[in-house]
Design a protein around this nucleic acid. Structure first.
Length: 214
DNA sequence: GAGAAGATCTCCT
DNA sequence: GGAGATCTTCTCA
């Protein structure tokens, strides 16, 4: 399989240049495409979270520009991939015009193609748990920092496209998961009753003090 | 330079 | 449901 044979066209830059919450909602039901050593991996996006800029205390961009969050301030439609908790990568797509921070975290996808490769990369976990979490999906799709800032509007090794026969879905919203601030905003969006959504009960982040660990 | 926190996952009880 | 693993990033002195 070469990249030109993939039957999905990348979403245009104008799609990502909209408001972050608008893009987050619109990304549901779109397809995440990964070309890995000749294998094609495809998953349907079923859960996302929107993160803003200086006005969003839960966002990496809240305190301004840093080396890590630079992609959030750049051109829309690029990948922002960061490493967290010493173990996991998280995949975001950048939104908003250059200079205005915004990104959408891809929290869960439904595997559609390339399941054998995903199972290998995830050490044979059950199918339903292959990609039902931000750290899980990046591992199943072999997404790491080498793909940070990649242009998702081009037919590269990673992009997001629209299915030709996209069926309508019911979207639900909730507070974002794993954060301790900004939980009053319902900026998490997911497809109702989908088996691959990471969780259906809201759980805020836990603030752990080192002194409490000892 | 040191200390603290973290957009998570998995194992164990 | 709780806690440990693990290490990058950021803040503060």
């Amino acid at each position: 399989m070469s990249i030109t044979e993939v039957p999905i066209d990348p979403l245009p830059r104008s799609f990502y240049a909209q408001g972050t919450v608008t893009v987050a909602r619109a990304l549901l039901n779109k397809q995440l495409v990964r070309l890995l050593d000749g294998s094609l991996l495809i998953g349907r996006i079923v859960e996302v979270e929107a993160y803003g800029g200086r006005n969003d205390p839960a966002s990496h961009a809240y305190r301004g520009k840093t080396p890590r969050n630079l992609p959030m301030f750049g051109e829309p439609g690029h990948a922002y991939i960061y490493f967290t908790y010493g173990n996991h990568y998280c995949l975001n797509v950048t939104t908003q015009p250059p200079g205005i921070a915004g990104a959408v975290l891809i929290r869960a996808i439904e595997p559609l193609q390339g399941l054998d490769v995903m199972k290998q990369l995830r050490s044979g976990v059950p199918e339903q748990q292959l990609t039902n979490g931000p750290g899980k999906l990046t591992k199943a799709f072999a997404i790491d920092r080498s793909l940070n800032q990649i242009d998702l509007t081009q037919r590269g090794n990673l992009f997001i496209g629209k299915a030709r026969n996209e069926s309508p879905v019911t979207v639900e919203r909730s507070p974002r998961i794993g954060i301790t601030v900004g939980i009053e905003r319902l900026w998490r969006f997911y497809i109702k009753s989908n088996d691959y959504v990471s969780r259906y009960t809201f759980k805020p982040g836990k603030r752990r003090l080192r002194s409490q660990l000892q």
